[in-house]
Amino acid sequence: MSSTGFAGRSVVVTGAGSGIGRATALRFAEEGANVLVADLNGETAQRTVEAVRTAGGVARAVVGDLGEQRVVDEIVATATGAYGGLDVLVNNAGIMDRMSALADTEDAEWERVIRVNLTAPFMLTRAALPHMLERGRGAIVFTASEAGLRGSAAGAAYTAAKHGIIGLTKSLAVMYRNNGIRANAIAPGATSTNIQVDAETSAHGPSVIASYPGLSGRVADAAEQAAAILFLASDAAGNINGAVLPVDNGWSAV
């Protein structure tokens, strides 16, 4: 039996093809969980599944855009059908903006970042909740960001989306605290992942952000973020609900 209580539990991890999501999926599998790997990239999703299986774990993938209801429905149906329910949801998938200041943020940038980083987690959580409520338990962990705690870590779109994730986390915690559902978030600082930042360094937003050098400290490994996610999802965090845990080497304390 896993010491963390994940043995045999059904876990969905989004953005699990790489970075924090992949590290998280692998850690859950190591602890005996049955993992549903959700990602937009089919090739990287399958690599994660193969890595889990090679290590003796159980995993399968669903590939698609989390902003589409049919993909959300497929993820939940696959996890509940294959694993007999849904115990843990990790809303990790996300994209960066171009570090654009508000006046320079085009509609396309705003809409894409909000859709992937805020609307998609909302949709997937909404689809997962009935299954968790039926069982009387469930743990939901969001990957927020240091940009959800301050205004100097990203552009307008990403900052708004991650502040929204924190608000969503707290709302869930309040609304379902008496139904056995816990919702928490990590707020990563600088972390080594493959997330891309397509920013024009001479633009107003990137130049302002660059004027705050060194505050983020060292760059974390994805596995460090995964460890925090597993803790918040575990029985050891059974009375932690509505918390936002900075995993940032003290950046939030500066």
Score class of each variant (00 low, 15 high):
residue 135 R to K: 13
residue 95 I to P: 15
residue 17 G to Q: 06
residue 237 A to C: 11
residue 167 G to I: 03
residue 107 D to K: 14
residue 44 T to Y: 02
residue 60 R to T: 06
residue 149 L to D: 06
residue 36 L to D: 03
residue 2 S to V: 07
residue 50 E to D: 15
residue 173 A to K: 02
residue 193 T to M: 07
residue 8 G to P: 02
residue 88 V to F: 04
residue 198 D to M: 11
residue 122 F to W: 10
residue 139 A to E: 02
residue 242 G to M: 00
residue 102 L to G: 13
residue 52 V to I: 15
residue 34 N to T: 04
residue 136 G to S: 08
residue 125 T to I: 03
residue 149 L to Y: 04
residue 126 R to Q: 13
residue 56 G to Q: 06
residue 40 L to T: 15
residue 36 L to N: 04
residue 214 G to C: 11
residue 49 V to I: 06
residue 230 L to G: 10
residue 240 I to A: 05
residue 50 E to A: 14
residue 134 E to A: 15
residue 36 L to Y: 05
residue 168 L to F: 13
residue 90 V to P: 11
residue 248 D to Q: 12
residue 104 D to E: 15
residue 70 R to T: 08
residue 201 T to F: 02
residue 18 S to A: 13
residue 140 I to K: 04
residue 116 V to Q: 13
residue 157 A to V: 04
residue 163 H to Y: 14
residue 10 S to W: 00
residue 206 P to L: 09
residue 152 S to E: 15
residue 163 H to M: 12
residue 139 A to P: 00
residue 37 V to L: 08
residue 214 G to S: 12
residue 9 R to N: 01
residue 175 M to I: 08
residue 204 H to A: 12
residue 107 D to T: 14
residue 44 T to P: 06
residue 77 A to N: 06
residue 35 V to H: 03
residue 174 V to K: 09
residue 168 L to M: 14
residue 97 D to K: 10
residue 118 L to I: 03
residue 200 E to R: 15
residue 167 G to N: 05
residue 124 L to G: 06
residue 44 T to L: 07
residue 188 P to M: 13
residue 232 L to V: 02
residue 27 R to S: 11
residue 207 S to N: 05
residue 206 P to N: 09
residue 200 E to L: 12
residue 209 I to G: 02
residue 121 P to G: 11
residue 150 R to Y: 04
residue 188 P to V: 09
residue 138 G to I: 03
residue 246 P to T: 04
residue 103 A to F: 12
residue 223 A to K: 12
residue 4 T to V: 00
residue 41 N to A: 12
residue 125 T to K: 03
residue 33 A to R: 05
residue 130 P to M: 07
residue 159 T to W: 09
residue 54 T to K: 13
residue 63 V to D: 10
residue 48 T to Q: 00
